[in-house]
Design a protein around this nucleic acid. Structure first.
Lengths: 230, 230
DNA sequence: TCAAAAGTGTTGTTGATACACCCATGA
DNA sequence: TCATGGGTGTATCAACAACACTTTTGA
């Protein structure tokens, strides 16, 4: 019965494509791979797949990300629906893009090889299939906007991180150098970074103190009208 | 041949729903109507329709808006794709919502009656079908965000408008009173409002000078790194 | 001992906010 | 003449930007 009402209307394939950001070696990177099926077999592509009849768009995105990386509880947000009739030469497909942010410490889980996945620095992005380069550009704009109004930068770092590392990340996202004294002052004044006892010595002789993002504290601040900006 | 590649994958109805904002009597309003077909015949609903096989999402939104209002060249922006499997009890439908901003002076074109369309102030919104209330809420958040970072407020006013009218609009969008001296100072300092000779006397005895938004000037400012905030 | 990154305060400038009175006019 | 909304300037405060030297330590 359900399908009787609308049956005179066209139906479409619906796909989900994931724009997967990571941060490593001081660079923003994107996880892409060579496509495994026709058309465009073996061309560079975002990770995507077709929506199944029993799942929501969000579930589809989560599934695709999980199938690919084995990771769950990843920051994931819907970005944009692409629906040009000719965007895919092999058929009419409406594709909804999602942005995913992969924390730094989950990089080396070895998922890359089995799916032919590679992390490519944003400034070395090859031509991707169809409108995937547009998606990446839109994703980058989103990331810049989002990172300057919400504390999502932390989603791209390991749970424990140093202030200089955080600054590097913001510099990579915003594409500009920041003053370290002002950066530090501002971030610490916001009161949601917990300083730990240990130092991270991988970045320098001296070592830098590790910090943790305090989500609870952040929530409390937001409840009191605080809003993050960098 | 085109449809041979993906034929093992599910297909979906794709709909477009328009969140149509207007500004009148100092109030933000939304254009809604009573739905013309089952299911939910005669329930309050946003204006929407099914995507056709030969049109893009943007084209679909434009078409629906045109069929309804007879208006073209309306500010229209994609907002969000809703894809919960059970969002429509009559079938699996992925719906992409769009925000439309209708300029004030195009209100009285008489399109309302023939489509049973009514302008409802935002604070008197009835229960809408399915997830349409969510869409409205999302649309309002979008409008607040957008209006404070881009000069889209002008899309909701007639081509010629007074500063007090513009201020009323921003107050309605942001939901707070603004200081008239500061508002005026700020807007005029941005240099993209052209003052006209005539006054509009409908709002007061004294009359207030009319202004026009100078799109060219605005573009030039943006090229030079200017960014609008209110 | 030196190279390399971490850490630390102050000052000037700019933009935001708060605020009260006169003006023009039609009824 | 008076009620109504339009129009104007200044002073205070908070946030941001600019800027240079000391510390630690492994090689």
């Amino acid at each position: 019965m359900a399908e009787t009402f609308y049956k005179e209307h066209s139906k479409f394939h619906v796909a989900v494509d994931c724009i997967i950001f990571g941060f490593d070696d001081g660079m923003l990177k994107l996880l892409i791979h060579k496509r495994k099926f026709e058309p465009f077999l073996d061309h560079w592509s975002l990770f995507g797949g077709f929506l199944r009849s029993d799942e929501s768009l969000d579930d589809g995105a989560r599934r695709i990300l999980f199938e690919l990386t084995g990771l769950e509880n990843i920051y994931l947000e819907q970005l944009y629906a692409h629906g040009e009739p000719m965007r895919d030469p092999a058929g009419r497909v409406v594709s909804v893009s999602y942005v995913a942010l992969i924390p730094g410490h989950k990089y080396h889980s070895g998922f890359s090889e089995q799916y032919d996945a590679v992390w490519i620095p944003l400034n070395m992005m090859p031509d991707l299939i169809m409108d995937h380069n547009d998606m990446v550009e839109r994703g980058l704009k989103w990331l810049r906007r989002r990172a300057s109004t919400r504390p999502i930068g932390f989603e791209l770092l390991p749970e424990e991180f140093t202030i200089p590392r955080l600054q590097n990340l913001y510099e990579a996202i915003l594409g500009e150098k920041l003053d370290k004294r002002n950066f530090r002052k501002k971030l610490l004044s916001m009161d949601f970074l917990k300083k730990l006892e240990e130092k991270d010595k991988t970045g320098s002789r001296k070592g830098a103190y590790l910090y943790k993002f305090d989500q609870q504290m952040y929530n409390k601040l937001v409840d009191n009208g605080f809003s993050f900006t960098i």
